[in-house]
Write a protein that binds this DNA or RNA. Sequence first.
DNA 1: TTGCGAAACAAACAAGTGTTAGTTAAGCAT
DNA 2: ATGCTTAACTAACACTTGTTTGTTTCGCAA
Lengths: 194, 194
Amino acid sequence: MAAATNSTRQNIRQTAERLFRDRGYAATGMRELAKEVGIEAPSIYNHYKSKDDLLREICIDIAGQFFKAFEAIDKNEKSPTKKLRSAIKGHIAVIGNNLEASSVFFHEWMFLEEPHLTKFKKMRFEYEQNFRDIIDKGIKKGELRNINTKLVTFTIFSALNATYDLYLYKSKEKISKDEIADGMADLLLKGLKN
Amino acid sequence: MAAATNSTRQNIRQTAERLFRDRGYAATGMRELAKEVGIEAPSIYNHYKSKDDLLREICIDIAGQFFKAFEAIDKNEKSPTKKLRSAIKGHIAVIGNNLEASSVFFHEWMFLEEPHLTKFKKMRFEYEQNFRDIIDKGIKKGELRNINTKLVTFTIFSALNATYDLYLYKSKEKISKDEIADGMADLLLKGLKN
DNA sequence: TTGCGAAACAAACAAGTGTTAGTTAAGCAT
DNA sequence: ATGCTTAACTAACACTTGTTTGTTTCGCAA
């Protein structure tokens, strides 16, 4: 029995996010997914066209959230440094609010079928370009020291995109969402500043 | 034993590294692997006990390289800051010299079967603990500013462990191994210093 | 030359893959 | 009550999965 508040579709979606994250997309079977939802495998196809369709919905949804968060930040005119800090924190917040889905987004996008795969790559490049632009402007204005923009953008995203993993620590010293966002933004910006 | 068999064995190993990286462990079939090597699938079992055996060999080999690189650095007594810089550069060097295998190491280890999975996790924790210890000592000595060690270690490894991806850029602005190692070490250490 | 071990092969196995077909039961508007 | 829609089910299809078996081929040591 599913909880009354959750529709079967939502249930499938959430379970898929969890299984795709824990076992990987390719290693997760439709029967396994169905079993965890509490239905039979073919019933999934009443809600989703295919396995790929599920993955697509998860990935596209997260991509949309990243764009939306950035746009909200980009509108407020600020210095590149402040803008970058906000963008970093916004990015981490999206991950923090979608722990399972964002992990799937980062690790399983490669299994998207065309044409979605190409579209996905394009969207990601565009998004990262936004960060690159801010950094370039920061260097031009002298707020940031002059280092390889590509390497820096890469380093930033590598650190940010792994934060979902930080929440999995079950040890006593648990780090809060704000600690993660602030601490990481501080560390990276201090490394960048002139 | 026989030297002649090594060629095929090495061939299987290298091809597996490439395929596991490009398509993922679970999504790579033994027939597909065999085809790229130029043999039939059952012939692989003359050289490897199982698919998991292949993955294990790849992962354990890389783990050993990380440990070896660190030990060589740890012996020379240096300040925590200098030691951390060397360890970072050593870590990146191992990745740079094993692009495909290290990518498999980072992304596909979850498919290891027991007891290798448990052993793997333990080794990784030990290795990361080495870095944590250096950072703690650096804070104690006042060389590094006092920030959450866990968050810092996490951020460092997230950045380092993604560097294999940097080499895949085919664009004009290619970054050299030294640029990556020095640039990333500078960025991270500047963010950490007091 | 004989014999042995290494390494290749084709054929097959049991289990599992995503997905479709056909059917049935329940809820709802007319 | 009737018909329509939704969503569940069982059964099955057409492949693919990792792996085993049994056999053959080949190069080398005795």
